[in-house]
């Protein structure tokens, strides 16, 4: 290639990032070359430090530098409601709302035999252990309305229903502030199924 060897290597590494193609990778590599030396070392150090320190929390498997994580350690949060999500990114999305005051449980994926992910590969066993100790009263499943999501919800429901807990799944339907006529059929059907009485 036209690149000198260390540069080619860096471009290759950047290309491994999600959503980054050859051109973006090249732009990023040249950006790094133009940075002052101390900023480059700071960047490299943050990558390594992040990898070393950020680990899944022992309770909820949310990625955090603390163990237990900031959310689990917060005594003001309600232990009686537990929100089950697929991914740490979902926790961040829900936390941004500042609406939910309970605790989380991150599954680390959804059941998908095609991708070789079975229930054993997810933190389902840990979820059962966690709710069996009795302090949890409601489980909220905040899981995407996809085939894999539906499968995982059905599976969890199978395992959890005999524990006499309230199990709910978040509602699906129209995005707030959107227009009925712009919604697609499937979303509208879901929204109709999940309708509520006006109070």
């Amino acid at each position: 290639m036209f690149y000198t060897q260390p540069l080619a290597k860096l471009i290759d590494e950047f290309q491994k990032f999600p959503g980054v193609g050859p051109k973006s990778a090249q732009r990023m590599a040249f950006f790094v070359l133009n940075l002052p030396y101390n900023e480059v070392t700071s960047l490299a150090r943050s990558i390594v430090e992040c990898k070393e320190k950020v680990k899944p929390c022992q309770n909820c498997f949310y990625l955090s530098a603390l163990n237990p994580c900031e959310i689990c350690a917060n005594l003001r949060r309600e232990v009686k409601s537990l929100c089950v999500v697929a991914d740490s990114k979902d926790v961040i999305a829900l936390e941004k709302t500042r609406e939910f005051r309970g605790l989380y449980h991150v599954l680390n994926g959804l059941i998908s035999p095609l991708a070789n992910i079975g229930p054993e590969n997810l933190k389902i066993h840990e979820l059962i252990n966690r709710v069996s100790n009795g302090s949890v009263e409601e489980i909220i499943l905040a899981i995407n309305p996809t085939i894999e999501g539906d499968t995982t919800v059905l599976y969890l429901n199978k395992l959890l229903k005999h524990l006499n807990l309230k199990i709910t799944r978040i509602a699906f339907g129209l995005p707030v502030g959107s227009d009925l006529e712009l919604a697609d059929d499937i979303t509208l059907v879901r929204a109709l199924e999940g309708r509520r009485e006006v109070v």
Partner: peptide, 9 residues
């Protein structure tokens, strides 16, 4: 359990 879930679906 997984098989049963797929059968339901």
């Amino acid at each position: 359990d997984s098989l049963d879930v797929y059968n339901q679906q």
